[in-house]
Amino acid sequence: MNILVCISHVPDTTTKIKFAENNTRLDTTGIQWVINPWDELSLTRALELKEKSGSGVQKVSVAHVGPSSAEPTIRKALAIGADDAYRVDVEALDSYQVAAQLAEIVKAGSFDMILCGIESSDYNGSNVGGMLAEFLDYVSVSGISHLDIEGGEILVTRELDGGREKLVVPSPFVGIVQKGIAKEPRIAAMRGIMMARKKPVHLVDATEAGPLTRVKEFEPPQPRPACKFVDPENPEQLVELLQNEAKVI
């Protein structure tokens, strides 16, 4: 069984977000780029499964859609333990364009399980995984908090609004994963970093598929009014404010 983990390259969450060119694009100066946290957890779980005896997982690959500036992120994924990587050399403008490119990698390869993080921490669309599954007409399961292979069966737990379900899924399938899938993201060790240099990164030509949406500009959210402080010696006043001023309780 071969697993493909789709990785997105996002600004570190603590980065202060700024925009450039009349707020039409992200100002990338000074941004620390990282693997999208959910993708990192997916990769960690894929590697755990590969190491689990009897899982039948032979290979874990990663795929990324984006220009060469994402190379360090891809190398990091290889250093963590992925066997090889695919990069589609195109600056994709929305999740539809990303998913269309990823679909070509899947069609050209031989993957039984494709994992995507539930959303990217930058654009928060939560769309790539589901779109990829539809391009391929594969089964998709969203909100996966647990993934295992037992006796040749792929078992997943999905979180629903108000509960969870355990499912047996056929392969190939697209798993869209969330928190819980792995405890902590795996960190690259020195040996992994050395080995990553020799692992192949396959460069893939972009397909013609373009975006469906167009971001005209970015807008900051409405600033919140300044915090009204209540005297800690008189917390009763808070109840009164919530009752009579905010009228929320």
């Binding site: 977000i17 925009f19 654009y123 469906l212 167009r214 971001v215 970015f218 807008e219 900051p220 959210p221």
Partner: peptide, 8 residues
């Protein structure tokens, strides 16, 4: 931290 003003 921002809204994307998006055309569909």
């Amino acid at each position: 931290n921002a809204f994307a003003v998006t055309e569909l």
